[in-house]
């Protein structure tokens, strides 16, 4: 089953009041099946982040088609895009992006809060995921009381709490030392074997090596699409 179907995707930024046009994405075609684990690579300025933002429904393409889970999301309004993010997507960031005033458990619950799920239901689901990432004994801690690896595991749990059809990760091991980075990669491997669809943006070959498909971007275009 196809999760992502993109054709002729363009994203153009206007700089200096329209005097300069920058083509961040210059016509991308991409299909992604359910359960795929892909890595997007490329030098900086190649359009990785822009593609991730568009895939993550944080940004709208200037032109082109984007079907996510069978629905056209290319030109939805802000409200509808928020809904899509809340119900279908999970994000893992390089710098974890946990909310410092909330506990581990509350951080995991945040996406469910915006779905309007009940407190009780959210709690049960969040506890389940805290356990799955091995943080059951840390649920009352604040993020600042955790190590980097633990924080990223909380972020992974948060990305999974809404049962997303697609998980997007942006340099998930970028802020971690190699040992804890491996822990996170192991978790992602487990997610993949559990049937989750994963898109990872990275320039670390080690990570890319674990993905089953590697897409190389250059100047806003797909340079190569290889399967391991």
């Amino acid at each position: 089953m196809t999760i992502i179907e993109i054709s002729q995707l363009h994203k153009t930024y206007s700089l200096a009041k329209g005097a300069i046009q920058v083509n961040a994405l210059a016509g991308i075609d991409l299909q992604l099946e359910r359960g795929e684990y892909i890595a997007i690579m490329g030098p900086s300025g190649s359009g990785k982040s822009t593609l991730l933002n568009v895939l993550g429904c944080l940004d709208r393409p200037t032109q082109g088609r984007y079907l996510l889970d069978g629905a056209d999301v290319a030109q939805l309004d802000d409200n509808a895009l928020s809904d899509v993010r809340s119900k279908k997507l999970g994000f893992i960031f390089q710098s974890y992006n946990l909310l410092p005033q909330l506990t581990v458990l509350e951080n995991i619950e945040v996406p469910l809060y915006y779905q309007g799920r009940s407190e009780k239901e959210s709690r049960i689901k969040a506890l389940e995921l805290a356990e799955a990432v091995g943080l059951a004994d840390r649920i009352r801690h604040k993020p600042t009381e955790l190590s980097g690896g633990q924080q990223q595991r909380v972020a992974v749990a948060r990305a999974l709490v809404n049962d997303p059809v697609l998980i997007l990760a942006d340099e998930p091991t970028g802020n971690l030392d190699s040992k804890t980075g491996l822990e996170i990669l192991d978790i992602m491997d487990r997610l993949h074997s559990g049937g989750k669809t994963l898109v990872v943006v990275t320039h670390d070959d080690g990570i890319a090596g674990r993905a089953k498909r590697i897409i190389q971007l250059r100047d806003g275009l797909i340079e190569s699409d290889t399967r391991n």
């Binding site: 993550g56 944080l58 802000d78 409200n79 928020s82 809904d83 993010r85 809340s86 119900k87 994000f91 992006n97 946990l98 909310l99 945040v110 996406p111 915006y114 779905q115 948060r158 809404n162």
Partner: peptide
């Protein structure tokens, strides 16, 4: 705000 928006918060929220 950015995090909350990414996690599904609408402007209204």
């Amino acid at each position: 705000i950015g995090i909350r928006r990414a996690l599904g918060a609408k402007k209204r929220d």
